[in-house]
Amino acid sequence: MSRKVVRTSKFRHVFGQAVKADQCYDDIRISQMTWDSNFCSVNPKFVAMIVEASGGGAFIVLPLSKTGRIDMSYPNVCGHTGPVLDIEWCPHNDNIIASGSEDCSVMIWEIPEGGLTQPLKDPVVKLDGHSKRVGILSWHPTAHNVLMSAGCDNVVILWNVARGEAAVRIDSLHTDLIYSACWNSDGSQILTSCKDKKLRVLDPRKGTVIAEKDKPHEGSRPVRAVFVSEGKILTTGFSRMSERQVALWDPKSFDEPLTLQELDTSSGVLLPFFDPDTGVVYLCGKGDSSIRYFEVTDEAPYVHYLSMYSSKESQKGMGYMPKRGLEVNKCEIARFYKLHERKCEPIVMTVPRKVNTFILSLLDVQALQNEVKELREMVEDLTKRVTELESKN
């Protein structure tokens, strides 16, 4: 008996493909900052990228349809006095974007329909509360006007954006620089990774620790963490020998990881993007030229390697399109916006489907329906004739 060794999965043949050159965004001077954020944020209307700017920080906002070469004089969002470190579109309003900067402030901007026609210097709201640079932003997934920011002052602040004030300030839990901070799917918990080598699950209402894990990865380099399905946590980090790792944890029993896999010896921090609809997690390394993707399931070894998209040029940042911005009729399950030094290149992840067979089967069904219709008409006609003959006799 031959044993089946290939695991069956609907996403085993997912493949990535870069769009044609004329669908890229060219001649954009992407920021040279060494900060480990995405540097790019996208939604179904706009793509925003942090760019080089003299005399302060700026980012450019382009309508998705404005592809090709971007003129050097194209207007920027340029209200910060220091370099912009992170940008994040609001999930509830596609025209609202938040930015965090080295000038210790968070600003909320409203982008007009169709994009900018002149430089935008005045934010809708300015949020002051951090004493050092603000490098992490994340909007609440379900509640309107709630924004989380984390700064180099080791403080996490939950803002009431409508009022322009801090609703919750978590300033005594983190003893060092915060590497990452994110919400779970319904916004009832916050997950942070910190330079003090601790992973923390927080209650955002009370500002207290629900669960804590010391040294999820042995190495001293930055750890990234995201919530995945069923409340589990996926982390990326480094071993003591500086090998990149990916691990899955159950916060109810934080002692040992459900799985821990070593990937390679590159030095770039792996940015994880999780898709809850498909259970696929994408790992994009800063400075890498590839995107690895894995399927997260509830069967060992829990994190199953699927494949890898590779290209020649390395990425300086990565934007991830929300599901509602994808072309699902083309079997698209994810789309990334890869930043090069001077351009932004969309990369489409597709599940191959036997479309031709599907169309043929539809045509077959239509043909059968037409035949049935003709047969019914013939039967009705014959019935009428029989009735007429019977009435004559």
Rank of each mutant, 00 (worst) to 15 (best):
S2P: 11
R7Q: 10
I28V: 04
V42F: 08
N43Q: 04
V47E: 00
G68F: 00
S73N: 00
Y74G: 00
V84S: 01
I97E: 02
P112G: 08
P112C: 11
G115Q: 12
T117L: 06
V124P: 12
K126G: 12
R133W: 12
V134T: 05
H140T: 04
H144D: 10
A150N: 08
W159R: 13
W159S: 13
E165W: 12
R169Q: 05
D176P: 02
Q189A: 13
I190V: 15
P204E: 07
I210Y: 04
E218H: 11
G219H: 05
A225W: 00
V226D: 01
V228N: 00
S242M: 14
V246C: 10
E256S: 06
V269S: 01
V269A: 02
F273D: 03
L283W: 01
R292E: 10
Y293T: 04
Y302D: 05
H304M: 06
L306Y: 09
Q315N: 13
G317P: 08
G319S: 09
G325M: 12
L339K: 03
K343T: 01
P346D: 05
M349Y: 10
V351G: 09
R353S: 02
K354C: 05
K354M: 07
S361N: 12
L362K: 15
L363S: 11
L363P: 01
V372P: 01
M378T: 14
E380G: 08
V386Q: 11
V386G: 02
T387P: 01
E388V: 13
